[in-house]
């Protein structure tokens, strides 16, 4: 349990998807105009990361990794389908996003109305694919660890986007040079936030 908590906390602050790895930047910069919408997108990202990372973990463990087909019989021990991992992970993410979309649409129209428009955006969010690839690289020992990593990364992303959205809401009242307004100042603020988050780098929990 302690291991799970430390993975969770570590992936929120130290390995923050946005500030430590600069993943998921496009939707981060484009959708962070108001706190409300960025909250919606953030929750959707947590949701999708929390589902796709464990699913891809199982796929990696029982289909793609070296020696993972051993359960089919001794003949399959040497089969290595690793070259397929990119495409399989992407397909899983895209279809999960689509499934989640259909599922929410059917069972909770209210949630769908607030989340719905963000779901297609998420399939192209590189933080999601990044999550699955990191999971493969870091060789988590169990599905619980993978899930905890997925959820933690999602929460880290949510904190990042809500943070920038709050700053952007306030900055509207500041006297920013006209050509820098909107996107320009957002880039620069994100850079500064990234520098601030660097102090977490190298901390081990």
């Amino acid at each position: 349990m302690q291991e799970l908590t430390s993975i969770f906390v570590q992936s929120i602050f130290i390995d923050n998807m946005v500030f430590a790895y600069f993943l998921g930047m496009c939707s981060y910069l484009a959708v962070s105009r108001t706190v409300k919408t960025s909250m919606g997108l953030g929750i959707a990202v947590i949701f999708v990361l929390g589902i796709t990372v464990p699913v891809n973990y199982l796929i990696n463990e029982y289909l793609l990794g070296p020696g993972s087909l051993a359960w089919l019989g001794p003949d399959f021990v040497d089969v290595n389908l690793n070259f397929l991992s990119f495409i399989v992970f992407i397909a899983v993410i895209a279809s999960m996003v689509q499934l989640v979309e259909m599922f929410i649409e059917k069972f909770s129209p209210a949630l769908y109305n607030s989340l719905g428009i963000f779901l297609p955006l998420i399939a192209v969010n590189c933080a999601i694919l990044g999550g699955s690839l990191f999971m493969q690289e870091r060789e988590y020992q169990s599905i619980a660890e993978a899930t905890s990593f997925g959820l933690g990364s999602g929460v880290g992303w949510l904190i990042a986007i809500v943070g920038i959205a709050a700053i952007r809401e306030k900055i509207r009242y500041s006297n920013v040079p006209a050509p820098l307004r909107g996107l320009g100042i957002t880039f620069i603020i994100t850079g500064l936030m990234g520098i601030a988050f660097m102090m977490f780098l190298g901390i081990k929990i």
Partner: peptide, 15 residues
């Protein structure tokens, strides 16, 4: 992070 700031400056110049 400096890449972000450089792009921010490019946006500034461009606009």
């Amino acid at each position: 992070p400096m890449a972000l700031i450089v792009v921010g400056v490019i946006i500034w110049v461009q606009r």
